[in-house]
Design a protein around this nucleic acid. Structure first.
Length: 135
RNA sequence: GUCACAGGCCGCUUUGUCGCCUUUCGGGGAGGAAAGUCCGGACAACAUAGAGCACCGCACCGCCUAACAGGCGGAGUUUCCGAAGCAGUUCGGAGGCAUAGAAAGUGUCACAGAAAAUUACUUCCCGCCAUUGCUGAAAAGCGUGACGGGUAAAGGUGAAAACGUGUGGUAAGAGCGCACGACCAGGGCAGGCAACUGUUGUGGGGGAUAAACCUUGCGGGUUGAAAUGCCAUGUACACCUUGCCAUUGUGUUGCUCGCACAGUCUCGAUUGUUUCGGGAGCAAGGGGGGUAGGCAGCGCAGAUUCCGUCCUAGACGGAACCAGAUAAAUGACAAAGACUCCGGCUUGCCGGAGGACAGAAUCCGGCUUAUAGGUCUGUGACUUUA
RNA sequence: GGUCCCGUAGCACAAUGGAUAGUGCAACAGAUUUCUAAUCUGUAGGUUACCGGUUCGAGCCCAGUCGGGAUCA
């Protein structure tokens, strides 16, 4: 398992398979770190890194594609800058994790709040339950 | 110079740090609307003898165009503004217009009104009869009523009322005749490619509605990149058709499956006759079931952009160009400059605030809608200077 | 990326181009009842999504915009 460069986020670290996302929403667990909500599940031991992620913003709340694109880019940026701390805690468990991060606030918040939410998300992630969760 | 209106154009720039997509490793990387999907094409698959009907769409004329319901120019009509005039009207400017046919036929026209499309009613007039009305000596006259005719002028309602005014004519009247005027149809002459305009003479008396049915002319094969072609992954194949090979017969059962017996082919064990055990389909297509990944389609190409010439749209010539993602890249953070607004004063500086609408998904041409701010042109009003 | 449909009172729906847009439920007030429910009587509530056009007249016809929904492997 090779560890990617610290501050990058290329195609292999993003969740792209439609089928995996469907099973993630069906079987995954979730928790909230305002203004973000994460759905996660242990997946097949990955060939690339130790986690894949995707981001999402509701079309019902943010009507235009410009608003949704900006929020998703900011969320990806925050994950990119803080993912190394997440990987460091994930490494001892030897598991591969899929994440779907959703923006749940009702209005567009500044980037500093999204950044703080991402740090809180990584702090709250239940690493101790990884062993009992079946792949 | 300010304000208002109309139209056209632009749609902040640069740098640093950390990143993303693509690449032929040099590089390249959102818009004027990328949006709505309202029109028109390219392209693709399928279908297709020819013609007609049905259905859908379009509708003044000419031109532009690959094409269009788009654009440019013109014609007609209509609204508003201004000027002239007592007024009808005329002239000028700025807009709007789905602008073929109501004299082929059918339908509809609420309420009101006599009547809503061609007839009836009231009225008006004439003739004849009656009269227990009045006058009168009587004849008769006036009135009233019924019947038979002639008219359609008058009826004030309505969005709309059966050509308008004058005159003749008549028992009463009527485009019934005449003069002037308005409208409609088709004809001649002149202008124009044409729509149409002007003029001349002929005929006419039939309201509106076709964004009601309809008629006429023109156009349209259907479906759309989730089209279409290929590869990979992978799953019970029940069933049907065709071909090759022949698993065939008998019994059981209403039929199928299944079971039993016998025969045929084949495989294995046995040296072998024999005996024992196992098996009896394959291929293609349809149908069903499954896959949710990739490649092509998808851009060094095109109805593209810029410049020049002609120029009304547009045409011709030259030069230039590099998005290609697929839970979906084209960014995040920071700084500086330019711009706008507010406040302060030293009147050109300081401080603070702000930057819209919006994100490619095969590609083009239009239309429509959203849009902070800037800029240019034209028109009108006001002010200042010469 | 396409295709199709809808929009009328708080909700569910009507209304042939023709008077002041109706029906049921809900709401409010009154009656009835010891009280409530049920029942009866009455009242209010509408920019017919928006904006233009055709017509004497538009919820209805036509065009554009906005919003909502369904569907296509």
């Amino acid at each position: 398992m090779d560890t990617p460069a610290p501050n990058t986020l290329d195609r292999n670290e993003r969740l792209k398979s439609r089928k995996v996302i469907a099973t993630l929403f069906k079987t995954g667990r979730s928790f909230v770190a305002y203004p973000l909500r994460v759905v996660w599940a242990v997946s097949h031991a990955g060939e690339h890194g130790c986690a894949t992620m995707a981001v999402s913003a509701s079309k019902r709340i943010f009507k235009t594609a410009v608003q949704r694109n900006r929020l998703k880019r900011q969320m990806r940026e925050a994950y990119r800058l803080h993912k190394q701390a997440f990987y460091d805690q994930l490494q001892p468990h030897q598991k591969h994790v899929s994440l779907m991060i959703t923006y749940i606030a009702k209005e567009q918040l500044p980037y500093t709040e999204i950044d703080a939410g991402m740090k809180k998300l990584i702090r709250k992630f239940p690493f101790e339950t990884l062993g009992e969760h079946k792949a």
